[in-house]
């Protein structure tokens, strides 16, 4: 699978179709994000698997968004799993002053193994831009726990949310978080300098994830308090009418991400 990806990226780089390929690089035991600009470097390409599948996934879409803003005329390749591609689409759909334009990125995708799809509880563990691998069966999210009624489950969630240490890791690692000013840092919405934070901290974030969350699970993996954030976002999205089995395409009334232009 990796060789197919390498061949594709080599082709894109040597034909000058992309300036760089946003992917992962392994050196020794160390796997990190990297932007490949020389086909020779691709020997070190990693798909994010070290000890088990997908144990070194990083928010590559976030990095791509940063690079396309810094280098406004360059075109980048991007290593994508199913969740990365969904995140890419969310970022492209943002109506921003400097949008992530579809012609700025060439996704090179691969499918996740069934083991990882199950561990992530992923409903679509492959991207449409599938360069390597075959589509893997997804998990039926409608059968997941925490897709019940928000009000009925609130007591249980209050205890869970009190574990939060307010590291902002869930927001910092999120591939679809790109606001210049973040609501959860605004005193008017969330009382600042409180630990544990008021429930409005994670609940406000959860509301903002409705229709945006791609259920990649990077936030959960970054959470020092083991808060099941994907489940929380799914629960809150359900309250706004999101189909549990088919996430996305739900809007929250009166909410527009900061920095977005509306009605123009």
């Amino acid at each position: 699978m990796k060789e197919t990806i390498k061949d594709k990226v080599k082709e894109l780089l040597s034909q000058g179709k992309i300036t760089g390929f946003v992917g992962l690089r392994q050196r020794g035991q160390d796997i990190s994000p990297y932007v490949f600009t020389d086909p020779e470097e691709l020997e070190e390409l990693s798909l994010g698997d070290r000890d088990r599948p997908g144990d070194a996934r990083y928010p590559l879409v976030g990095l791509l968004g940063d690079l396309t803003e810094r280098f406004p005329t360059e075109i980048f390749g991007l290593l994508v799993r199913g969740c990365d591609e969904r995140a890419l689409r969310v970022r492209m759909a943002d109506n921003r002053v400097t949008p992530l334009s579809p012609d700025r990125v060439i996704p090179v995708g691969f499918s996740c193994p069934p083991e990882l799809a199950q561990a992530c509880r992923c409903h679509k563990p492959w991207p449409d831009a599938l360069t390597a691998g075959e589509p893997t069966p997804g998990v039926n999210l409608a059968e997941e726990p925490f897709s019940g009624d928000l009000l009925e489950e609130m007591d249980k969630w209050t205890d869970i949310l009190n574990r939060c240490v307010k590291c902002f890791g869930c927001r910092d690692i999120c591939p679809v978080c790109s606001c210049r000013e973040c609501t959860v840092e605004q005193e008017a919405m969330v009382p600042q300098r409180e630990l544990p934070p008021a429930p409005s901290f994670l609940m406000t974030r959860a509301v903002h994830m409705v229709g945006r969350c791609v259920y990649c699970g990077l936030c959960e993996q970054a959470c020092p308090a083991d808060i099941p954030l994907k489940s929380l976002y799914r629960l809150v999205a359900a309250a706004f009418g999101q189909d549990a089995a088919a996430p996305g395409a739900v809007t929250v009334p009166y909410y527009t991400p900061t920095g977005a232009r509306t009605g123009e």
């Binding site: 035991q29 160390d30 796997i31 990190s32 070194a56 996934r57 990083y58 928010p59 940063d66 970054a222």
Partner: peptide
């Protein structure tokens, strides 16, 4: 410098 990312490994 543009950011910090925790090491997964």
């Amino acid at each position: 410098l543009i950011g910090t990312l925790p090491s997964k490994t």
